[in-house]
Write a protein that binds this DNA or RNA. Structure first.
Lengths: 149, 149
DNA sequence: CACGATATTGAAAACGGTTTTCAACCTATA
DNA sequence: TATAGGTTGAAAACCGTTTTCAATATCGTG
């Protein structure tokens, strides 16, 4: 498994794209954050340290990350695109707290297996999948109190 | 289990909302279609027979369906909101063909069970979930040919 | 049945996030 | 270092969703 930096540089070379300071800055910041930030949030975060980098560049660079395989686009249905670092090998899914926004990752080989079975039954070739459980995380339902808004 | 029409009328009464001809027209059209149409597509479809009904009304009425429980909002990550009729009782998930757009429904009690197990392990209270498998349906990968576009 | 309070409608505008445009500016290569 | 061609940031365009608003329809009441 190649390191993300290499993977990105290789991709740039292969596509005859250029290695710019902005792209490197964004790459470093992206690898450092381990959360599931929306483009907007990531941009705001980045802007604190690097006010010169524009939103368009951030957006374009995140898409490059996705294209070269070091990131995945996620969409939790809140109208914002999110990018997450592709760490390992294993696919993982998400628990999304609808109260505080916390996102918990999990993986389950049994579920993955059942998904393959279903695809097979329908003669369907799976390219990707997503599984998200929406609800209240331990912090938000523990005490019985819920947001009243 | 109440019939969808009743369920909707009850909801209107309960909320002191009014029973208008547009709402009834949209309800009938919505129950007739069994697909997973986007608001846009549903509106275009409806407009053929009922040119007088505006997009805003369609949109607002579909949201009412969702609120009163006879419809569910779906989001397959293509930037369009989709509504589907809530037929029965059982939750179901989707196979989405990325080539022809076909959507196949399925349900699997084992997967549902595993999801509950995972939620329990994380002390997470599930309100909703979604599982989508993206790939090629039997028609689109059977012959080995893929869209070239 | 007619009235009047209030909800609803359709068109257009506003909105919010994403994507494109474009002129100025870099980067890589020779 | 010259140059061709990719990149940048700001602003505008875009696209689906949501709101606004004046005109209209509905429903409970007198």
């Amino acid at each position: 498994m190649k390191k993300p930096e290499e993977q990105f540089l290789d991709y740039l070379a292969r596509k005859r794209l250029k290695n710019t300071s902005q792209r490197m800055t964004i790459l470093k910041a992206f690898l450092r954050q381990k959360s599931h930030l929306s483009t907007e949030d990531f941009y705001l975060q980045l802007r604190k340290k690097h006010p010169g980098i524009g939103y368009a560049t951030v957006h374009r660079t995140l898409k490059l990350f996705s294209e070269c395989g070091i990131a995945s686009e996620r969409n939790f249905g809140d109208g914002q695109m999110r990018f997450e670092v592709n760490l390992g090998n294993e696919h993982h899914d998400h628990l999304v707290c609808t109260d505080c926004g916390r996102i918990i990752e999990f993986e389950d080989q049994q579920i993955e297996k059942l998904q393959r079975d279903i695809a097979h039954k329908h003669n369907f070739f799976i390219k990707d999948h997503r599984l998200e459980l929406y609800g209240l995380c331990s912090d938000c339902h523990a005490t019985g109190q819920q947001s009243v808004s």
